[in-house]
Design a protein around this nucleic acid. Structure first.
Lengths: 137, 137
DNA sequence: ATTACTGCAAAGCATTTGCAGACTG
DNA sequence: CAGTCTGCAAATGCTTTGCAGTAAT
């Protein structure tokens, strides 16, 4: 299993900051919030602003190379590289870690709802609970 | 099938505003945001503030008679009476209407994830797409 | 009469936007 | 050097909090 090579999208400039953001996301085990990315970036560099991080994430998301996921639990969006997989997440109530799941039960699921003729485009599934570090006792 | 009688929780005062909020939620077809509830309340009454609505919703949610659901799509929370049912939602991309679904595919679903020993307490499932009014063409 | 509740103002947090100077191709 | 990026400041949208006067038991 070879690691995907990241393809820099056309028409957007390669700046030090953008390269760093991508690098951070490449090394990230879990989806990260803008704030977390900012902290990771700031380690060495001169001043970086959260608004710039948001702009970078937004432009990469538009180019479809990263995925923005808004997690229900705390209203904060998290970002990860788009590996073109269908993924859902488990969210730890204790430490707020977001853990991707590898399977999805929604294939061939026929939702029944009050409103007929709802045209389903996609779905989000989120499990919540405790990760092994946070599980009480 | 008889309509659930709403049981006023102990230890909280019956004010005109609170009764009105509950009444609005009893008549609501779909979960409502604080803003929508405010609009519904304001029809006749003297000034009502959104912070008060939030406080009312919060206290009822604590008492477990209403349910707060934060929807992924736009980060806005919606509220509905707690009918003690397990429910998921479909969200319209066009008008942001939130439509409860009557079935759930997650029973007996065994999530596989990178982190073993994740202790699942519950889940959220959200379908998105277009309701019949918003479906393009 | 207590204590809880509400109007109102202001703060908080994640995110977005505007602008002028700095950097990339 | 032209157009794109970024630092920075300020605005936005949803939600929360503080306080003092008002209403419910």
């Amino acid at each position: 299993m070879e690691k995907d090579k990241f393809v820099w999208p056309e028409g957007i400039k390669k700046t030090k900051l953008r390269k760093k953001v991508i690098e951070i996301l490449q090394n990230a085990k879990f989806p990260m919030s803008a704030m977390e990315i900012l902290s990771a970036v700031k380690e060495d560099e001169s001043p970086v602003w959260i608004s710039t991080i948001y702009r970078i994430l937004e432009i990469f998301a538009e180019k479809d190379v990263i995925i923005k996921t808004s997690v229900i639990e705390n209203g904060t969006a998290v970002y990860e590289l788009n590996k073109h997989e269908h993924t859902h997440y488990a969210v730890c109530i204790g430490c707020h870690k977001i853990i991707p799941m590898e399977n999805c039960p929604i294939h061939a699921f026929e939702p029944k709802m009050l409103e007929n003729d709802f045209h389903v485009l996609g779905h989000k599934l989120e499990m919540y609970g405790y990760c092994k570090n946070c599980y009480p006792n």
